[in-house]
Design a protein around this nucleic acid. Structure first.
Lengths: 194, 194
DNA sequence: GTCTATAGTATGATAGAC
DNA sequence: GTCTATCATACTATAGAC
């Protein structure tokens, strides 16, 4: 099916953000990448900030979708396997994952100086932390909610840190995967011992 | 002592980078912040990239100094206390720490799109990981080096992740401190059990 | 909805006086 | 070394035709 222009623009924005960063995103360049006119972008998104907001949401939805798809495709019954796969999914050398991770890192960095981005990013982070906490609770039902959330926040924050190092060539993919697996192991071990 | 203009400008640049980011640094605004003229900045630093290069070096030197000073000032007999304080040092709401953490985050983010930055950043990361691994080895001398380094990488990567969330207002300072302390606890526990 | 053309402005950089 | 004044351009955003 032919995609509507709005989606085409957001896909192009995701690619461009992965290549040049949020700071390097130019409306004119985005128009060229998407194969549309300059003006159309303003028609659909109002202004540059609107493009960024929509693209963040788009990337988020896409990430959720591929996570769900992947978990479903693998027929993962074991809750621990679901937890591991969900986090490992962020360390794959595919265009989509690279785009998502890069864009996420960029948005995080931009939010340090852009108050408007903060609310959306904080909310997305809250949801993501909650989902991981739920996965932990599925593995260890006896663990109190606040302890599960604490472990989840550490795992997702670690994931962001490792992702940043991977994308800046400070860490190999295999090493990043090993480190996150070790962290899951450690957190579950500690929680299980309570 | 009265500082020379060059230093005054770099100090002002550090403040502005913490407020607006590397990309948000405007020469005109920098001139106002430093209390000098527009042209003087070009006289001393040649161009915008020159300002950035000099300022990042300036910030790096300053960070090394305050870390060394702080660890020396607190009479730290207990190796574990040294490890905890070293990592907690990055979670303080002081201008210097904020400026340094912000600049580090900016550097990491920029390295994703700038190949030239990667080598320096990777080396700095390697040194930092090694120092933390040494601190872990001081707490638990029986632990093999590769296990200590693994734990160290997880802790420093987690620190970067938490730092990003703190600076983008996604996490309170207290929460970040609690999470990193919990991680130190978990890593040392796991290593001690081997 | 989509395009072309352009206005408005912010910003990096330079020239030249002192 | 330092300042004022100004140029050149890159970028966001809007207007108006189709």
């Amino acid at each position: 099916m032919a995609q509507d222009r709005r989606t085409v623009i957001m896909e192009a924005a995701a690619r461009l953000i992965a290549r040049r960063g949020v700071r390097g995103l130019r409306i004119e360049e985005l128009a060229a990448e998407a194969g549309v006119s300059n003006g159309l972008i303003y028609y659909h998104f109002k202004d540059r900030a609107g493009v960024l907001r929509a693209t963040l949401e788009f990337i988020n939805n896409r990430a959720e979708r591929y996570t769900a798809e992947h978990v479903a495709a693998e027929h993962l019954a074991d809750p621990r396997a679901v937890l591991e796969q969900t986090l490992l999914l962020e360390f794959q050398d595919t265009a989509e994952v690279r785009e998502n991770s890069t864009a996420w890192g960029e948005l995080r960095a931009s939010a340090m100086f852009d108050v408007l981005l903060r609310a959306d990013l904080a909310e997305a982070t809250r949801v993501w932390d909650g989902e991981v906490a739920d996965l932990i609770a599925a593995v260890l039902p006896a663990v109190p909610g606040d302890r599960a959330l604490e472990a989840a926040q550490r795992l997702t924050a670690l994931l962001e840190g490792l992702s940043g190092r991977w994308l800046s060539e400070g860490l190999t993919l295999d090493r990043a995967r090993a480190l996150i697996l070790g962290a899951i192991d450690g957190e579950l071990d500690a929680l299980g011992r309570v």
